[in-house]
Amino acid sequence: MTATLPEGLALTRNAHGREFIQINHPAVTATIALEGAQVIDCVPAGKQPLLWMSPIDPRMPGTALRGGIPLCWPWFGNSRPGPAHGIARTSPWQLIDAQRDDQQVRLRLELAAEQMKALLPDERWHLQVEFVIGKQLSVSLTSTNLGKQAQPLSQALHSYLPVADITQASITGLEGCRYIDQLTSQEHRAQPGPILIDQEVDRIYYDHTAPVILHQHNGRCLEVTREGSHSLVVWNPWQAKAARLSQFPQDGFRQMVCLEASNAGPDARVLEPGQSHTLVTRIRQVPGTG
């Protein structure tokens, strides 16, 4: 970590030795893991948490954390050989800038160049993430191809959102949108109405840029907006898969759903030498009726 932390921000270390940036600001409290550059909680003042984090994850060094917003980069899923969802979510990052004002906190982190050695020899990237944390949470992931060849890029901001009961929640904003069902590999199906989840769901919705809203029966609504993204992943492992996942509580599937700003499926990109691309997600609580 090279940047100086302003008032209200502190570097902490848990009992296992993993390091975090703890944010205590009048407008928000939040925690970001330096390993993985992963925001794991964010609570605007007077509001409920914007993110879900597994209560049984011990947050050990060298592990992918279960919850918050893992950074899936430079590939999504298992689309390339190597660790699932790429190298970014388990690599150490460096804090290069930290600022605060009366409304929010702004942090920028950079993936160390030495971490790129895990990629192919002809791949050269610069990767930076910016967090803007206040009444809403904004995460911007910027990739720049520093190499001499065009490079494929698929990625996601794997946002875990909290729900009181997934069986009484719905997701709107994707009506009529085509999607790929990754459980069956079926393509070009159109979403007939709001999404209701009562089984495992793993879908890539594409050709879509509009806001998406997670509604709950208690009236709480979370809105997800995106930039640099024409695809959105909706994921809930349900009971059988949840039992096979690491650091996932037995009934955890009932308290979360992932709505992920992405460049996945047909929305995967190719960056020419010198080209940059920024993927953005913003999450906020909005008025609603459930």
Score class of each variant (00 low, 15 high):
residue 1 M to N: 14
residue 4 T to C: 11
residue 5 L to V: 11
residue 5 L to N: 08
residue 8 G to C: 14
residue 8 G to Y: 14
residue 9 L to P: 11
residue 14 N to D: 12
residue 15 A to R: 11
residue 15 A to S: 12
residue 17 G to A: 10
residue 19 E to I: 11
residue 22 Q to M: 10
residue 25 H to A: 06
residue 27 A to K: 10
residue 27 A to P: 06
residue 28 V to S: 04
residue 29 T to F: 09
residue 30 A to G: 06
residue 33 A to G: 05
residue 34 L to S: 07
residue 35 E to W: 08
residue 38 Q to W: 12
residue 43 V to G: 12
residue 46 G to F: 14
residue 53 M to A: 15
residue 53 M to Y: 15
residue 53 M to P: 13
residue 54 S to P: 15
residue 64 A to L: 12
residue 66 R to Y: 13
residue 68 G to T: 07
residue 69 I to P: 09
residue 70 P to E: 13
residue 70 P to M: 13
residue 72 C to D: 14
residue 73 W to A: 12
residue 73 W to Q: 10
residue 73 W to Y: 12
residue 74 P to V: 08
residue 75 W to D: 06
residue 80 R to Q: 13
residue 80 R to N: 10
residue 82 G to W: 03
residue 87 I to Q: 04
residue 88 A to R: 02
residue 88 A to F: 01
residue 89 R to W: 00
residue 94 Q to N: 08
residue 94 Q to T: 10
residue 99 Q to D: 04
residue 100 R to T: 14
residue 103 Q to N: 09
residue 106 R to H: 11
residue 109 L to P: 04
residue 109 L to E: 03
residue 111 L to S: 07
residue 112 A to G: 15
residue 115 Q to H: 08
residue 116 M to E: 12
residue 117 K to T: 14
residue 123 E to V: 02
residue 124 R to C: 08
residue 125 W to Y: 11
residue 125 W to S: 03
residue 126 H to P: 06
residue 127 L to F: 09
residue 129 V to L: 11
residue 130 E to N: 13
residue 130 E to W: 11
residue 131 F to C: 11
residue 141 L to W: 07
residue 142 T to M: 07
residue 146 L to M: 09
residue 147 G to S: 02
residue 149 Q to P: 01
residue 151 Q to C: 03
residue 155 Q to L: 05
residue 160 Y to H: 01
residue 160 Y to F: 01
residue 160 Y to A: 03
residue 161 L to D: 00
residue 162 P to R: 02
residue 165 D to K: 00
residue 171 I to S: 00
residue 172 T to W: 00
residue 174 L to N: 01
residue 178 R to N: 02
residue 178 R to A: 05
residue 180 I to D: 02
residue 181 D to V: 00
residue 184 T to H: 02
residue 188 H to Y: 04
residue 189 R to V: 05
residue 190 A to G: 01
residue 191 Q to T: 03
residue 191 Q to M: 04
residue 191 Q to K: 01
residue 193 G to Y: 00
residue 195 I to E: 00
residue 197 I to E: 02
residue 199 Q to C: 05
residue 202 D to E: 02
residue 204 I to N: 03
residue 215 H to F: 01
residue 217 H to W: 02
residue 218 N to E: 03
residue 218 N to S: 05
residue 223 E to K: 07
residue 226 R to A: 05
residue 229 S to N: 03
residue 230 H to Y: 09
residue 230 H to T: 13
residue 231 S to P: 05
residue 231 S to L: 02
residue 231 S to V: 01
residue 232 L to K: 03
residue 234 V to P: 01
residue 235 W to A: 02
residue 238 W to P: 03
residue 241 K to H: 05
residue 244 R to K: 11
residue 246 S to W: 04
residue 247 Q to K: 09
residue 248 F to R: 09
residue 249 P to G: 04
residue 252 G to T: 06
residue 252 G to L: 11
residue 253 F to C: 14
residue 254 R to G: 06
residue 256 M to Y: 07
residue 259 L to V: 09
residue 259 L to P: 09
residue 261 A to T: 15
residue 262 S to H: 10
residue 265 G to R: 10
residue 266 P to M: 10
residue 266 P to D: 11
residue 268 A to H: 09
residue 268 A to L: 08
residue 268 A to G: 14
residue 270 V to G: 07
residue 270 V to F: 05
residue 271 L to N: 11
residue 272 E to S: 13
residue 272 E to P: 10
residue 274 G to Q: 10
residue 281 T to Y: 10
residue 285 Q to S: 13
residue 285 Q to T: 14
residue 286 V to A: 15
residue 289 T to Y: 14
residue 289 T to S: 12
